[in-house]
Computed example of a mutant assay.
Amino acid sequence: MKKKYISVKDSMLKFQLEQLGAEVCNIKEPLYYIKFTIHGTKFRYLYHINRKNKYFLERISPYNMPIAGFDLEENIINSIKIDIEKFKNAKNSKKFENFIYTNQDIVNIAKIFEKIYLHYNISKYDLKEINDEICNIKSKLEDIVKTNKIVYDVDEDIEIY
């Protein structure tokens, strides 16, 4: 009986996403691929439902970013709506393409770091140097949040750890 409940929930979610203009592909139940193209920018998301009926949403394009886990399918819809609205707003900037490339670089750096860490015995000096550079980047991001004008305001705290 649980299987039918999940299928009904999946159908409702798929319908709501299609109403937003998405193409929803069932890769293999319970994994779904969501495609939007808005003003020339491709948005791609993956979501899946685990055995406890919890949803996990991840943006995979224009760059990869885990978004969140949810209890309700409505939260997926709302998250995608907000995500796309923020990108529509950001696209007004002349720096939009640079922003996308920078984020892609950050994702690639994380992947490279993981490969290096898993394949090499990194010296404590190299690791400290990398950590120092990351602290510098975090500090710069904190400065940006403190000193720049907000252009998109939602009930979302930006925390920089």
Rank of each mutant, 00 (worst) to 15 (best):
S11R: 13
S11Y: 13
S11Q: 12
M12A: 10
M12W: 11
M12S: 08
M12I: 15
M12K: 14
M12R: 13
L13H: 07
L13R: 07
L13E: 07
K14F: 04
K14M: 12
K14N: 10
F15C: 03
F15W: 10
Q16K: 15
Q16E: 15
Q16V: 10
Q16L: 14
Q16R: 15
L17P: 12
L17V: 07
L17T: 06
E18G: 06
E18Q: 15
Q19C: 10
Q19W: 05
Q19E: 15
Q19F: 04
Q19I: 11
Q19H: 09
Q19G: 04
L20S: 06
L20Q: 11
L20M: 15
G21L: 01
A22I: 09
A22F: 09
A22H: 07
A22Q: 07
E23H: 09
E23L: 11
V24N: 05
V24T: 05
V24E: 03
V24I: 10
C25E: 13
C25V: 14
C25S: 10
C25N: 13
C25L: 15
N26R: 12
N26P: 00
N26I: 10
N26L: 09
I27T: 09
I27A: 07
I27D: 08
I27M: 09
I27G: 00
I27C: 04
K28S: 12
K28P: 01
K28A: 11
K28I: 10
K28E: 13
K28W: 05
K28D: 09
E29A: 09
E29H: 12
E29L: 03
E29C: 04
E29V: 06
P30M: 07
P30V: 04
P30N: 08
L31I: 14
L31E: 12
Y32N: 05
Y32G: 01
Y32R: 08
Y32D: 02
Y33A: 07
Y33Q: 14
Y33N: 14
Y33E: 14
I34A: 06
I34G: 06
K35H: 13
K35G: 01
K35Y: 10
K35N: 13
K35W: 02
K35Q: 12
K35I: 07
F36P: 08
F36M: 03
T37V: 13
T37G: 00
T37L: 08
T37R: 12
T37E: 14
T37M: 09
I38P: 03
I38H: 08
I38M: 04
I38A: 01
H39R: 14
H39C: 04
H39D: 15
H39A: 08
H39G: 00
H39S: 12
G40K: 03
G40P: 05
G40A: 01
T41F: 00
T41Y: 00
T41S: 03
T41P: 00
T41A: 02
T41C: 06
K42C: 03
K42P: 01
K42V: 08
K42H: 07
K42M: 05
F43L: 02
F43V: 01
F43H: 14
F43E: 02
F43C: 02
R44L: 10
R44C: 07
Y45E: 04
Y45D: 02
Y45Q: 06
L46H: 11
L46Q: 09
Y47L: 06
Y47G: 04
Y47R: 06
H48Q: 08
H48R: 11
I49P: 00
I49N: 00
I49K: 06
I49G: 00
I49E: 02
N50Y: 03
N50E: 05
N50S: 03
N50R: 04
